[in-house]
């Protein structure tokens, strides 16, 4: 099996699982060295050919596999020879870290500039304006809505933003 260094990382395992799902995971978790056909993979892993193909095309869409087509001279059929390109995983995850950083920054601004109310029974959170429209009563259960602090959440977000910026070598924009 190739790319064992990468596949030992639990975050990378989780990433692959997120992409291909549980059915595709046997394909994604055991990339062979060199080229392989979808049929060989289905046979080796004892999976349906369709499930193998589905997983391979998801990997292809994420730059984690490539194929070349070869025509069998006797039958005239096309064979797909697949190569796993897992050396691209770190670059993909780096991009995901940038996207996550952007999302937390956006959300942090929203959390800082809004006031929130909570129904403690239903655990539903409302913005100040919504809470006022409902007369500060939960529309689900009628309990009074309580003012809710989000400092703890904002602090946790700020810390993660700092860590991500530091790791990605991004300067603070504000």
């Amino acid at each position: 099996m190739a790319f064992e260094d990468l596949l030992n990382d639990p975050v990378i395992q989780k990433y692959l699982h997120e992409l291909v799902g549980p059915t595709g995971m046997p394909v994604a978790a055991a990339p062979p060295d060199g080229e392989v056909t979808d049929e060989e993979l289905a046979e080796d892993l004892d999976l349906e050919l369709n499930d193998v193909r589905r997983a391979l095309f998801i990997l292809y869409e994420n730059d984690l596999a490539t194929y070349r087509r070869v025509r069998d001279e006797d039958s005239g059929w096309l064979t797909y020879l697949w190569t796993f390109e897992y050396e691209n995983i770190p670059e993909n995850l780096k991009e995901e870290m940038h996207r996550l950083l952007e999302a937390i920054e956006q959300r942090e601004e929203y959390e800082r500039t809004h006031e929130f109310y909570l129904c403690e029974v239903c655990s539903i959170r409302f913005e100040f304006g919504e809470a006022m429209d409902f007369g500060f009563e939960c529309p689900e259960c009628g309990s009074p809505l309580e003012s809710m602090e989000n400092n703890h959440l904002v602090d946790a977000m700020t810390r993660r933003v700092d860590n991500l910026r530091d790791e990605l070598n991004v300067d603070a924009t504000s």
Binding site: D9, P90, M97
Partner: peptide, 9 residues
């Protein structure tokens, strides 16, 4: 990129 701390995701 492979040196990054992916656990931050």
């Amino acid at each position: 990129a492979k040196d990054l701390d992916f656990a931050l995701l």
